[in-house]
Amino acid sequence: MENDLERITTIVRNLFDEYEGPVTPMLSARDVAQWNSLLNVQFLVLVEKEFGIQFSSRQVAQFKNIGELMAALQAKRTPQ
C-alpha cells in the first residue's frame, strides 16, 4: 500500500503540477485547485495505466479520495 501511494504521488505531482501540499490517502479533488472533472478522468487513466488495471464507471463515480482509490487497487489484486 505504501508503494501504491508513492506511485500515485508521482502521478499527482506530474498532473496537478501546481499543487505542492502533501499527498495522503485523505487527499481529494477539493484539496487541489487543478483537480477538475476533466483532469479527474485523465488522472484515473494514468492510474489505470500505471497499475495495469481498469476501473468500472461505477467505481469512477464513487471515488472520494486517494485512499478509496488505493483500496480499489488493493481489491483488484485480491483473488475473488
Binding site: 478522468v41 485523465q42 484515473l44 487513466v45 489505470e48 481498469q54 464507471s57
Partner: peptide, 9 residues
C-alpha cells in the same frame, strides 16, 4: 491505442 470504459477516455 487505449480505451478506458470506466472514464470514457
Amino acid at each position: 491505442t487505449y480505451v478506458s470504459p470506466g472514464t470514457g477516455i
